[in-house]
Design a binder for these strands. Structure first.
Lengths: 230, 230
DNA sequence: CGACTTCTTGATGTAACTCAATCCCGGTGG
DNA sequence: CCACCGGGATTGAGTTACATCAAGAAGTCG
């Protein structure tokens, strides 16, 4: 993980969008910008929390291990997003999750002490962060229920709709590079099952493939698969 | 849900423990105390968020529906605990979950506007609430991973250890009344599977039964069942 | 004492995991 | 330039954990 040379504006990221304008110079003085290569691990579950990160460019997956060879992807942080905040806790200062770049990325690091100062000095930022946590908790618990009660097919359908929502589409194709393995970890299923299910969806003309990328062809059918929820 | 007649001290609950002492009178002026009967629904998923609740007495389950006849219990709020805070969100003001009393309970209601005022006026409270959300998010995501990768037996073992941790024990027996159906919803499995698994654990002498209540006999074995998780 | 949940157990079905074999394709070195 | 190699993609077959269904037993409450 290399420290980036060039000056990079701290704009349009979670912290800059919610803090007071006069606080921006302080952030600029305290931030460290890193360049990260595709597949590179930014921090690892179980290590000490040193600070919080923001994404300038690229996508970063936040994932949690199970044993040696299994994982669950909890979330993908994208441009402007925050990550590493799951390390905040009243009980421990150990990251409960790892973060890995899905593609070459530029991220911004803010150390913990300064981050806490930011919260205290910027009341609005603290409130926004709290609401952000609340939103993530809702999201997490929705996924939890889906994991408990929904079929793999339904979970994949939902994941695809969500990914399209979040990352948009380019020529109808979901605008994110995600390996089948990562998709499997994202929906909590095995590689093979995801593979077969994707094929089913193609046969049923709910989606189509452009190489490895996925295009949603019939969102209504996909939505039907996710029904019964709420 | 009846409004309670008697005066009840707002002490040793989440809000009073973290706000400024001089703020307590304001809380007392704004709170409404309800008495709730076992099995009574306090609020329902999908309805408008009107405020936040605290538990004075009894246990309250927070759960999320799936279709008509399935649910997942996300959490059990106990004496002093907060619930309904999952309704906080930057996007919606609809409860994503329901809350139901597991036994006769006394709860305290604070309306949303006053709650937000409390956050703004008590900086420490806001921070604590944020950290509380962060802790819950960690917890939620741990459970999510378990749901994805752990067996029902492991999840039950973990749930029992957690319940013991949280509710303590009386004569060695976990000090909470939880129907098998609720336990099933808590670990995300069916009634029958939970029933059989509990029996297995009894045969293996990891736990024993006192009526419907559960006593942990061999915590090490239970812990082994939950292993592989970080 | 009868109606009504809740418990208990067996039998059966099946979604999804696991393991393994083959295929495909890009890269690499001879 | 082509043969070789390795790793991901693809497919098949077997296994299993768990859900589902069904039906009897046993509590429980009016």
């Amino acid at each position: 993980m290399k420290i980036y040379k060039k000056e990079y504006p701290t704009e349009n990221c979670f912290i800059s969008n919610h803090c007071l304008p006069e606080w921006l110079p302080a952030i600029n003085a305290n931030k460290i910008i890193y360049e990260v290569k595709k597949g590179e691990v930014i921090f690892t579950e179980g290590t000490e929390v040193t600070g919080i990160y923001f994404v300038y460019e690229g996508n970063v997956k936040v994932h949690k291990k199970w044993g040696n060879d299994k994982e669950l992807i909890l979330r993908i942080a994208t441009k402007g997003g925050i990550f590493g905040h799951r390390g905040l806790s009243s009980k421990s200062n150990i990251y409960p999750i790892s973060a890995t770049a899905l593609e070459n990325a530029t991220v911004c690091f803010i150390d913990l002490a300064f981050f806490y100062t930011t919260i205290k000095v910027n009341p609005d930022f603290g409130l926004k962060l709290m609401l952000f946590f609340a939103d993530e908790l809702q999201e997490s618990e929705r996924k939890m229920r889906n994991l408990a009660h929904m079929s793999v097919k339904g979970r994949i359908a939902e994941a695809l709709l969500l990914l399209k929502e979040k990352f948009g589409e380019k020529d109808g194709v979901i605008n994110i590079t995600l390996s089948r393995q990562d998709l499997a970890s994202y929906v909590g299923a095995t590689y093979e099952t995801v593979f077969r299910t994707i094929n089913e969806l193609v046969v049923e003309k709910s989606i189509s493939l452009q190489g490895k990328n996925i295009k949603l062809e019939n969102m209504d059918v996909l939505k039907n698969l996710t029904l019964q929820a709420s």
